[in-house]
Computed example of a mutant assay.
Amino acid sequence: MKEVIDFLNSNSMGSLATVENGKPRVRPWGFMLEQGGKLWFCTANTKNVFQQLQMNPAVEFTSSSQAYVTVRVSGEVKFSKDLEMKKRIIENSPMVKGIYKTPENPIFEIFCLEHGKAIVSDFSGQPPKTFEF
């Protein structure tokens, strides 16, 4: 899994897919950080994506490098109110800090993938690598 985490730390911007009314919805998204084997992300509870995740917590996040290596992680999100983790995310991302300002912001929500699957693939002809977490 270290390979996946290192990749996501270097290629944190990607796309997040959710489901809305039985149809896929994909949007640009950022990976925030890993802690204790959990992959952390954030959003605002005022966004449609927040409601989508509440109704169906199954997601997939994908990111690619300039060398055409791709990582896909999938699983079910778990929301958290952990202020220390919110603080870490804000400290880790100037963009998030610019949007939400403080961990106590009432619209700032964090969520993680605690268990799931990660796939690393490229165009080398080698089979993809699969990791369970």
Results as ranks from 00 to 15, higher is better:
residue 2 K to Q: 09
residue 29 W to C: 06
residue 71 V to D: 00
residue 86 K to G: 07
residue 72 R to Y: 00
residue 128 P to L: 09
residue 70 T to S: 06
residue 31 F to S: 10
residue 47 K to F: 05
residue 28 P to R: 07
residue 38 K to I: 01
residue 66 Q to C: 04
residue 7 F to Y: 02
residue 7 F to E: 03
residue 44 A to Y: 08
residue 94 P to Y: 01
residue 127 P to M: 14
residue 26 V to M: 04
residue 62 T to F: 00
residue 53 L to Q: 05
residue 32 M to G: 12
residue 30 G to T: 11
residue 17 A to I: 02
residue 126 Q to E: 06
residue 104 E to G: 08
residue 97 K to G: 03
residue 116 G to L: 09
residue 28 P to V: 03
residue 116 G to Y: 06
residue 47 K to N: 08
residue 92 N to L: 15
residue 95 M to P: 14
residue 24 P to Y: 05
residue 127 P to R: 11
residue 70 T to L: 06
residue 57 P to I: 11
residue 110 I to Q: 08
residue 112 C to Y: 14
residue 27 R to E: 00
residue 44 A to W: 05
residue 49 V to F: 04
residue 18 T to E: 02
residue 22 G to I: 09
residue 122 D to Y: 07
residue 37 G to L: 02
residue 91 E to I: 11
residue 27 R to K: 15
residue 114 E to Q: 15
residue 109 E to L: 13
residue 119 I to H: 01
residue 91 E to K: 15
residue 11 N to C: 07
residue 74 S to R: 14
residue 101 K to W: 05
residue 85 M to P: 10
residue 33 L to F: 06
residue 90 I to C: 12
residue 61 F to M: 07
residue 104 E to D: 07
residue 107 I to E: 12
residue 24 P to E: 12
residue 23 K to C: 01
residue 92 N to M: 11
residue 106 P to I: 13
residue 57 P to T: 11
residue 94 P to T: 13
residue 68 Y to S: 10
residue 33 L to N: 03
residue 57 P to S: 06
